[in-house]
Design a protein around this nucleic acid. Structure first.
Lengths: 338, 338
DNA sequence: TTCTTTTTTGTAATCGATTACACGCTTGGC
DNA sequence: GCCAAGCGTGTAATCGATTACAAAAAAGAA
């Protein structure tokens, strides 16, 4: 079922069939009609591979993420794919599993499959792999890493602003002792969020005890453990910011398990605003980072680099929104801790 | 950067290079060494598209799911991809969004991209699309639909057994009034689970009032709403089975919101065992359906149909496991409802 | 009608790989 | 020394599309 069969059936040449399909406008309407009928009758679809071979464009983008099971990613993937399909692109998703060796494999696969561009939404990337990609003149879009170069776009999330607003909110509620549960510090994104918090706190001149910044693992159990640590301090924080919502959910569990209440005794703020956050007990106040927007903008950046006339890489900003729910409340005047 | 450049650099023909790459064993070791060096120096990767064109195999599988944002799917996708990469296949994921029109688009994309097989893990499939695929001799694996035919494998989940065990568990705890919250009845999978429940109940001769089977939407809010309905009955059920875990979580919320407790007042059983279920308050008793297994077996079925000598479709069974946590307990002898 | 111009269609090269077939060089048997 | 067999390598066809160029057909001008 190839173009030749279509051509035979329509008693025309493959060139004419091709021209009809690609709307080049050089085909007489009556002829085009014949072609369309033959295509219909045979149920013909053009072979994308063959097309790719001659055009040098596979019409595929790679999307490298850490782990699709992490609830941060599915929405991002979905909006990326949605945008892609809309423009006739296909998407190859690859999970690094937070593992830089796997990352190498992902990059290799992308090159072999001749994708037209790669969105790297994870931070396990070393300069060696980067140059591998640059060498092939592959358009790239990063999340929060590196600089903008001719073919390299960059999406930058303004963590400082988001975390700043959250701290502002907490401070205005009268909290003095503010804790932070970070993600695993092996992760670039976790480090970025943590240092944004630290910077923000010191900028406000709030005395920050170093023991009230602890490390989680961006999952529920890690958040629970970290919060337990914080609760065992002589003076536990009265408000806790977290590096992502799963961590916050873990913190919620640790707090209610010790018989304290959120937000009456301790306020908790999440990060990301995953869907679940609306449904926790109590619903989570959190810093929303729109994954929809991330996915869409990542695609757009690649698309414009590939198809656009402007060949330069872009710098794309993505903001955050503080979503106020019920896990934050004014600090008690007399804390119930001794 | 193509095979010709490699051949030139190694002062050999493209045929020899190709033979070296494909380990056909007809190359003198010393020659092969030259080729490998040239490949190294140029950083050459074979063009998969060109390969696909001549071999007639794209080494890609399609994976059609409802919605990657639904927590049921990410694990399935991940295990499918993992298995695929392991065997040198790439995966194209497509979301139908529970929409049968989109499904048509997904199928078309799969055909255009010349995938070597399609796993359809959703039930928006009409016979027209099916014949479209069959017409192209594409190996297919379904989840819970259709019959096994030469190129069509089928994964069958034994819902009756799983739900049977759950009902057994609930009954042995002394519950008499057992409710069920189904998924949206537009979904095949939801209907299957619901009818498995009904069959199971009637087989045990438990008087089933029809008002205690209500419809949710497989999401948290739907479960909450449906549970609220059940609670407003004159004699609410003392135990509730649900069509998936999100629904159960919604039910949990509705119950605690009205001041009742789980499991003391009402027992709740989920379905699927998504990761979150371990972390609900209380942790959810649920019927585990291993998505890992689903993904892996779906891949294996396609792989064997494509590469294996046995060209027949398979029938694959996937079981369930009742996971006992803390959302189920003995029925109170004197229910606190009037 | 006849010739020119323009539009439509066809022929064949091309993309980057694989592979059937042919060719050349060793090697060994006689 | 000659020929057959066998191994290693090269030449060229092929996969299914697109497209430069050539050719044919239609339209317009005279």
């Amino acid at each position: 079922m190839n173009i030749k069969e279509v051509a035979n059936r329509a008693r025309l040449s493959t060139a004419t069939v091709s021209r009809t399909i690609n709307q080049s406008g050089l085909v007489r309407p009556r002829t085009a009609e014949k072609v369309r009928r033959a295509i219909q009758e045979l149920g013909y679809y053009p072979n994308t591979q063959a097309r790719a071979l001659v055009s040098g464009r596979s019409q595929m983008f790679g999307l490298i993420i850490s782990d699709i099971v992490n609830p941060f990613f599915p929405e991002l993937v979905k909006s990326f794919e949605f945008a892609a399909i809309h423009r006739g692109y296909e998407v190859i998703v690859a999970n690094t599993d937070y593992n830089s060796e796997r990352m190498g494999g992902c990059v290799r696969r992308m090159i072999e499959r001749k994708v037209d561009g790669v969105a790297i939404m994870t931070s396990e990337i070393d300069s060696h792999l980067l140059s591998e990609l640059a060498h092939r003149r592959l358009p790239i879009v990063f999340l929060d890493v590196g600089k903008v170069k001719p073919l390299i776009s960059n999406i930058r999330v303004d963590y400082s602003k988001g975390i700043g607003e959250a701290v502002q909110h907490i401070v205005s509620l009268g909290h003095k002792r503010i804790g932070f549960i970070s993600g695993p510090l092996t992760l670039k994104s976790a480090r970025t969020r943590r240092s944004a918090f630290l910077k923000c706190i010191s900028a406000r001149g709030i005395g920050q005890r170093r023991q009230s910044v602890v490390e989680g693992n961006h999952k529920i159990d890690g958040g629970e453990l970290a919060m337990t640590q914080l609760l065992s301090l002589r003076e536990p924080p009265t408000a806790v910011l977290t590096s992502n919502d799963l961590t916050a959910i873990g913190a919620l569990r640790a707090i209610t398990r010790t018989g304290l209440r959120v937000p009456e005794d301790i306020s908790v703020v999440g990060f990301d605003d995953i869907e679940l956050s609306r449904f926790t007990q109590p619903p989570l106040t959190t810093i929303r980072l729109s994954r929809d927007e991330l996915g869409r903008k990542a695609f757009d950046a690649l698309y414009e680099t590939v198809e656009g006339q402007a060949r330069a890489g872009h710098e794309i900003k993505v903001g955050t929104v503080l979503v106020l729910r019920e896990s934050t409340a004014p600090a008690k005047s007399k804390p119930r801790f001794r």
